[in-house]
């Protein structure tokens, strides 16, 4: 069988890549893609712990379902915001959206 720490280390690597994407990319849509990678890493962790610790209880799966719902809501609102920002600034580069900067 696959040891549990293989899943956790893979999820950690996926999380680190998502973190890099969020911090380093300029395009706001790419930043949202990084957030998606991080949420997926979290979901791998939740389901791996569910399978290896308590597969007879639905707790781990319930957490994963909530993460799915939150991810869908976050993407819908985020992308709508980017479309609105694009209409106003003609750009989705995160360093050019500086209306609140003085």
């Amino acid at each position: 069988m696959i040891p549990l720490d293989w899943y956790l280390i893979l999820a950690a690597a996926l999380f680190a890549l998502g973190l890099f994407g969020v911090l380093a990319r300029k395009n706001a849509v790419a930043i949202l893609m990084g957030v998606e990678l991080m949420l997926n890493a979290v979901n791998i962790n939740l389901l791996a712990f569910w399978r290896y610790r308590a597969p007879d209880q639905p707790v781990g799966m319930a957490f994963a379902v909530i993460v799915f719902a939150v991810a869908a809501a976050e993407v819908a609102v985020g992308l709508a915001l980017f479309i609105a920002v694009y209409r106003r600034f003609n750009s989705v580069a995160a360093d050019e959206i500086n209306l609140l900067k003085w």
Binding site: M1, P3, L4, D5, R51, Y52, A54, P55, D56
Partner: peptide, 10 residues
């Protein structure tokens, strides 16, 4: 950490 899962998924 456990090396293999406990039990089976019902």
């Amino acid at each position: 950490l456990p090396a293999s899962p406990v039990g089976e998924v019902p």
